[in-house]
Design a protein around this nucleic acid. Sequence first.
DNA 1: GAACGCAACAATGCATTCATTGATAAATCC
DNA 2: GGATTTATCAATGAATGCATTGTTGCGTTC
Lengths: 232, 232
Amino acid sequence: MTAAMQDPSAPEARPLSQTQRAIALLREMIISNKLPPGSNHLESELAVMLGMSRTPIREAAIMLEAQGLVEVKPRHGIRVLPIAPADMEEIYSILTELESLAAYNLANSQPGDAALAELRQHIDEMDAALAADDRHRWARADDAFHRSLIRLAGNRRLETVVTTYSDQVHRARLLTLFMRPAPSASNNDHRRLVDAIAAGEAEAAQAIHRAHRIDAKNMMLKLIAAHGFSAV
Amino acid sequence: MTAAMQDPSAPEARPLSQTQRAIALLREMIISNKLPPGSNHLESELAVMLGMSRTPIREAAIMLEAQGLVEVKPRHGIRVLPIAPADMEEIYSILTELESLAAYNLANSQPGDAALAELRQHIDEMDAALAADDRHRWARADDAFHRSLIRLAGNRRLETVVTTYSDQVHRARLLTLFMRPAPSASNNDHRRLVDAIAAGEAEAAQAIHRAHRIDAKNMMLKLIAAHGFSAV
DNA sequence: GAACGCAACAATGCATTCATTGATAAATCC
DNA sequence: GGATTTATCAATGAATGCATTGTTGCGTTC
């Protein structure tokens, strides 16, 4: 092996398997709505689209099916699953419970200043996005806040589950992002949550986050119904 | 479409794909300890063992990895994941929260007599198993009770998550099944839970089940530590 | 004209094949 | 003799090939 095979300019030199690429690319296309809900896709079609053979596509489809993003129908190809209001009820019910648990556990774990600063930084970013009236930026910061909250709680499996179900409702959040009123009240909840966590008030943190999630769910369902969507 | 296309005599006439067979067989072998935790297995070895090619084995491995039962290591084969006490803390934390949620939701849904009868039947079976001093039979009935509880709550995703994590601790439950004292107190909890559900006392049901799960977790961790296991 | 049956086709499930890559062992040099 | 380098090997990642099966369209018959 010669040194010329290594590319010193690239910081990461891992090849990344085709299957991993397929999973990442398809997931991205699904949650960003490039592959619309309800659409069907042949393995060969996706294989051509991503420039690989059918094998890694099949393997990716199995993974994405396990994550609830697609359905592999024996003779009808790979179907992007739509999310109906009933699905959102299911998902938010789980997310509410598990994220509140994360808040509770984090509050009990006496998090260090670094952890609290990380959370507050995301809140500041949300405020800045609100001031700039940039909703996409706000949504990214909101995402980051919730991910940090879960990660800092220190339960990796909980992180996995929450990520899985957050992915499933990602399209719905995108859809309602511009329907909803400016999410300034939401940031109040976030600040109160971090304060409760900092003070070690576990039950308060849990209650605050639970209420926050329930409000978010109700608003989203109302918006989607009001705009006449039966699935997303 | 003619009526002749439906076959009323055979309730199930599907061939069941090799991949599905591989998933079911490997899962069974893993949770029943036939493939011991920590053991490594080559794709070709499993392929020969199950009488199929590597392809369905690979696909099954991806699914089982998504369910947290194995780890696919690039050059070292498929590794059955051991469950350490820290993993059990993670898992029971999630199971406690979600099963309690199921109890809460079921109590609120005013379940019919059929649902309540189903739950009570499993409890009776547990009593019978206790009387016969048959712990395997008790464990099966206990499993069935918990599965019914989750299923009747009507949230399919919740069912999926709980099943996934129940699988991961299945070996540990098997291990402690004969270490623990006779699980008669456990059945008291079950009866009180069903009574609370029948009475529509959602918060009581939730609290009873939460306490039940926390007790079970603490006992299991104590037993495993007392017997000197560092992983299962 | 409608319905049933048959045939051609297309997509998948799975096996097989090939190439890449990490590991192991042997051989040579210091 | 030990260490380093090289060569062989084994296992996986991925592509391809093949057979099965569901579907669609056409022809025939009632």
